[in-house]
Design a protein around this nucleic acid. Structure first.
Lengths: 230, 230
DNA sequence: AAATCACTTTGATCGCCGCCGAAGCATTAC
DNA sequence: GTAATGCTTCGGCGGCGATCAAAGTGATTT
């Protein structure tokens, strides 16, 4: 059977601290150079090079060479989703023997708000999702999510171009994504990506230097309160 | 950071051919004994015991002791989903250097129809999903899926008890699940599980001995044609 | 009670893989 | 041109972990 070995190979590839760290660092959806990833993983460049070569060969990463820099990014959203589901399982498992971890300031910022490949996660993402549900703009459960008719109008007003989004029938789906720090659902998929993009464009949020963490700007404080009530 | 190490540990656990084989064998959602899993994985019982202990400790498996038999099953549907997404990524990656595999008769039966944890997959699952979409009973895309109002009535008539299903708002979601053999979507989630249960109850399909494979009975041939038009 | 069966624990062996140092190849800077 | 930077390839070291044999535990059978 081909599938069993393919599965094991892929999992083994991820199941290595250095490689896992690299993949996790790329979960913000942006491209990083080999050197940056080496530093993130805590290994020398030559070791990182080997890892990156194998990850790319397995189709988990896509590489883009520009001069002497080699930019690596996750190959697709499906890779990000796979990693996310793996994290969800790992976290829930690790939660039983209550992992005693000192959460540094960096962790705290990450838990407050971060990107999850192409959409918002952390407390910000979860609060945003809660607000949207409460106001009847979307419906969300672990099984799935969808934009309501009222929501469709709201998002249009907010400046999202959802016309181009692929939808089956008349519904527009928003993929629920389990947040590993909050253990609650937030909005992923097409809608989540569009929302995050718009917030970046409005300068409501800004990426922290070289991290998945995002920070809410003063304009964002006002904007989120005005548009989403928090 | 705790998450990176937890992720790597879990992935490493899966990234071992023997353990991966065991997990895959449990993808039909049923419980197997330690001995059966040892045979599936092609290792001695004592080796399997070690593997199973680690998988259970990590929260991937749940164990149920009955006399001198120890029954193991996947700990939850989220574990199955995680494995499924891992397979999807592995397959697509392996497809690039077109894997030359001789598909035996067993593989062929598996591709025709099998269970994917708690719902139907393979050609049968995909055809079923296509039929449901075409007839307007459900809507399905890679982002999500939902039951239409027409579908709600149809499934009620078909004998599914969907009242107990958790739903947010008024919608009932059906989770899309990417089929690794067909590369198309089939119906998972609550609805997929209910559909599969009902088909088993109607004796339309039957599990093959010790395998994920399911076979369509003569009654099923008629039933699928009458109710779903194929 | 003795024998058998299913499973686990322990101990020892061995192969694989991650790691870094050194060297090689590009590209950019001066 | 020379030097510096970013990345890769090669070679050898070292450790983790998968494996099985043998022995131990507990349940079922005769």
């Amino acid at each position: 059977m081909p599938t069993t070995s393919a599965l094991a190979e892929t999992a083994a590839l991820i199941g290595e601290p250095a490689r896992a760290g690299m993949l996790l660092a790329l979960m913000d959806g942006r491209a990083l150079t080999a050197g940056e990833l080496a530093r993130v993983a805590g290994v020398t460049p030559q070791t990182a090079s080997g890892h990156l070569g194998r990850l790319a060969a397995a189709g988990l990463l896509s590489v883009h060479c520009q001069g002497r820099h080699h930019y690596h990014r996750l190959a697709s959203a499906s890779v990000a989703r796979m990693l996310e589901s793996l994290m969800a399982v790992s976290e829930s498992a690790a939660a039983q023997p209550r992992r005693a971890v000192v959460t540094g300031p960096r962790d705290r910022a990450m838990r407050a708000a971060r990107t999850c490949y192409d959409h918002l996660a952390g407390q910000l993402g979860v609060t945003l999702a809660d607000s949207l549900v409460e106001r009847g703009h979307i419906e969300l459960s672990s099984e799935g999510g969808a934009v309501t008719n009222a929501g469709l109008a709201f998002f249009g007003e907010f400046g999202l171009d959802l016309a181009a989004a692929p939808r089956s029938g008349k519904r527009l789906f928003c993929r629920p994504c389990l947040d590993w720090s909050e253990r609650r659902l937030h909005v992923g998929g097409m809608l989540g990506a569009a929302l995050a993009d718009r917030c970046f464009a409005l300068n409501w949020i800004r990426r922290a230097e070289g991290s998945r963490t995002v920070v809410v700007t003063p304009a964002g404080e006002l904007g989120f309160r005005a548009s989403f009530g928090f």
